[in-house]
Amino acid sequence: MKNLFLALTLASGSFAFAQEKSSKSSVAVGLKSGLNISTVSSSASKSKAGFYGGFFVNFSISSSISIQPEVLYNGLGAKKAADTDLKSNLDYISVPVMFQYRVIPQLFLEAGPQFSFLVNAKYNFPSSVNAKDVVKTFDFGLGLGTGYYFTHNFGLTARYFAGITNIIEEGAPVNTSKGRNNVFQIGLVYKFK
């Protein structure tokens, strides 16, 4: 909970800074949402579809470089490989901080860290195991992606996020002792400026 509070404080501080600096530099605020295809790295799982959505602030440092902190709801998880009806549903508040390079004004490449905080964990199959006792509350990883703006305001983005930290609690009563979130995202973005 402390980590979530810290991340939200940092994000709100960034947004306040953006409002203060908007008259001196190029700052854009926007919304984004789309489809997650996620899995937990384990031989016993396969991908499942989910939703992501949230907001961002884009700070242009130069004509080709910008930094974009975001606050997103991320619906992640996985299906059990042997049975598509068995799923784990993991809901996170994620705070990616992406460093973007504009190849041309409409097209950008991006990379950066992502800090995620578990808000809900559920298994949709009968079990005596509480999902919140199995999954750690903090996740860290790196994202790599691209995006293209069709107009000044509307664009399409794609990103791959690779988890670095093990999300499974030590001593958890599950078939695997290690697992990392991995997700491919594709979605739409709208900039207000």
Rank of each mutant, 00 (worst) to 15 (best):
L10M: 12
T84M: 06
Q68N: 07
L144G: 14
A121I: 03
L109G: 01
Y160P: 02
Q185P: 02
P126Y: 02
E169P: 05
G143F: 02
A7L: 15
R180S: 10
V40T: 09
I37E: 05
F59C: 06
S177D: 15
V129W: 04
G147S: 12
G141V: 03
G75W: 05
L156F: 01
K191T: 13
K2V: 12
I164L: 15
V183A: 12
K48C: 09
K2D: 10
P69V: 00
A121E: 09
S23H: 11
L8G: 13
K24G: 05
Y101F: 15
S116D: 06
Q106C: 00
P105Q: 06
Q185G: 01
D83Y: 03
V119I: 15
I67T: 04
A11M: 13
I67D: 05
M1I: 07
N120K: 15
Q100F: 05
E110C: 05
V119H: 07
A172N: 09
N130M: 03
A18R: 03
Y148A: 11
E170I: 04
I67R: 02
L72T: 01
V29W: 03
S45H: 11
R180H: 12
G54A: 02
E170N: 15
E20S: 09
E110F: 00
T9M: 14
L10W: 09
S45K: 01
V183Y: 01
A162T: 06
